[in-house]
């Protein structure tokens, strides 16, 4: 077992209710939940792999493929929707030539939607990595993308 995984396990009790916090930490550490890590978690918590996939696929947070270099999250909360969030997502899908939930072939961007970032008064907003950009337009967004390699 890798050193990293061992140090993650050390922080959590061997109890099934620790499954989600462990998955979250694995994702924080590796960027995604790999089949190997599922096997290791299964052995550690004594929970079947099926159960782990059942739980992890239920929650929107977990991903099972390696992430791209930058993550784009388009907020599609109500306020953002009313002010044109969906148009931004469509534009990104077109410009990056991927669908929402996918990664570009050059692994430059991940494209996802998010239910609400809680910055509704500044809508529509788009989050790239940790940066939230407010009052977005199609034009501003396509300029913004150039900042990320």
């Amino acid at each position: 077992m890798s050193e990293k995984m061992r140090s993650i396990f050390e922080k959590y009790e061997r109890s099934p209710d620790q499954l989600i916090p462990i998955l979250q930490e694995v994702q924080r550490e590796y960027g995604y939940v790999s089949p190997e890590s599922v096997k290791m978690i299964s052995r550690y918590l004594r929970v079947t792999e099926n159960q782990i996939y059942g739980v992890s696929s239920f929650y929107a947070q977990f991903r099972f493929t390696p992430p791209g270099r930058h993550s784009i999250k388009v907020c599609l909360g109500t306020a953002c929707h009313v002010r044109g969030g969906a148009t931004l997502l469509e534009m990104l899908e077109r410009e990056l030539d991927i669908k929402c939930g996918q990664t570009t072939a050059d692994r430059r961007f991940d494209l996802d939607r998010v239910a609400c970032l809680g910055c509704c008064a500044l809508s529509p907003v788009v989050q790239i990595d940790k940066e939230i950009s407010s009052r977005m337009t199609v034009t501003k967004l396509s300029e913004l993308l150039k900042k990320y390699e």
Binding site: S15, D17, I20, Q24, V55, F58, Y59, A60
Partner: peptide, 23 residues
């Protein structure tokens, strides 16, 4: 406890299931 991105977990019994490590 950090949620993992499921709106339904705002419902009491779903929230409890989530803390218990279930769907």
């Amino acid at each position: 406890k950090e949620g993992a991105g499921a709106f339904v977990c705002g419902e009491e019994t779903a929230l409890i299931a989530s803390i218990e490590g279930k769907r």
